[in-house]
Nucleic acid binder design. Structure first.
Lengths: 194, 194
DNA sequence: ATAATAAAACCGACTTGACGGTTTGTTTTT
DNA sequence: AAAAACAAACCGTCAAGTCGGTTTTATTAT
């Protein structure tokens, strides 16, 4: 009960990784189980052995990606408190994730969830957990501000970056996004100070 | 050459409307031509008569929805200049559209375009036209500001609303979004004044 | 220790249903 | 009569899920 378990865990991990790669590359509409298996270097049978169906695979994949994101943000917040990271740097960190694989994957999944109530129900626990953890991180970021104001500034920031991430589908212009991010940094600094 | 043309034009319009309804309700992944035909109250044969294929239908549908949006925004800008609409009211107008059918449809289409270069090429002329028209509208909104600053504030606003629109997939809480919008209105007022 | 047995991991062919596009037929207008 | 507008049956493709089989690892009995 050791070699087997490790091997199993390993292929599971490979499958989840492959699923994320496929989801980001092909989009949910063209997300094919055999391609995931191929990308992971295992057979389709192995996939069905580890995950009951497509939705099951997707739910676990999104769980993984959200966890990694929260983890990275928590680290960033810690560095911020230790003085190793500025507020600007923290925003850069968030933008790094929102402009990469993470956001595109969550976007694909969100649209799927929007049209499939069952899938949405499968996902909402994860999403709630995610949001509350993010809330905590940002609240710790500005302990001198009233919690409500802290939440507002966070939600404004996150939604702005969300929107920028969405726009990046059609506009690939890092110069433009940097300018935009800088504008917001300036505003945020001012708001935090006052 | 009259009755026929009018009838043709009418079913075309019905098909485009139906396509938008289906796209918003079912999402692109579950967007089915026969459902569009059913929603429009015509046969599938009629659909193929008017549109070469799925992509063709989608391109024309998105063209329609973008035009309507720009039209509404232009009207809002006019009212703003006539003093019949405040800046807050203008933002409300934009949010009205970004939280409704328009944004979800463009989101579905954007994700499709992201993974299908041919489709993206079909669309980019429309998107460019759209962006430049929006640019103009916002620049006229703040003629006393330098154009670059005007553009920045516009892009911040639009991206914030975009992000909020995206979040509304999982969080249906108009109270929350109103608060967020109000926060931004306050910030924007301040930025425009300075 | 080793053979027998169980159990898990994995493979890949097949079924089944769905949908986009085609094609053929019918009605209506010019 | 000719062409346009529409209707509806049809077909080929494609992928998700199923399932019987195979290999590898763990457990148990002798």
């Amino acid at each position: 009960m050791k070699w087997q378990q490790r091997k199993s865990w390993e292929t599971r991990r490979k499958l989840l990784n492959a699923a994320l790669i496929c989801l980001e590359r092909d989009g949910f509409h063209s997300f094919r189980l055999d391609r995931v298996a191929g990308e992971a270097g295992v057979s389709k049978g192995a996939l069905t052995h580890h995950f009951a169906n497509k939705d099951d695979l997707l739910v676990h994949a999104i769980e993984k990606v959200l966890d990694e994101f929260v983890e990275a943000l928590a680290c960033g917040a810690d560095e911020f408190h230790d003085g190793h990271l500025t507020l600007d740097g923290f925003l850069d960190l968030v933008w790094h994730y929102m402009s990469g694989q993470l956001y595109m994957v969550t976007l694909e999944i969100a649209l799927k969830a929007r049209h499939e109530p069952d899938f949405k129900n499968l996902l909402t626990p994860q999403v709630r957990r995610f949001h509350s953890r993010i809330d905590d991180i940002w609240e710790r970021l500005f302990p001198h501000l009233p919690p409500e104001r802290s939440r507002h500034l966070m939600n404004l920031s996150m939604n702005l970056l969300r929107g920028m991430g969405t726009q990046s589908v059609f506009r690939e212009d890092s110069q433009y996004f940097n300018e935009l991010l800088n504008s917001w940094k300036a505003i945020l600094r001012q708001e935090v100070a006052s």
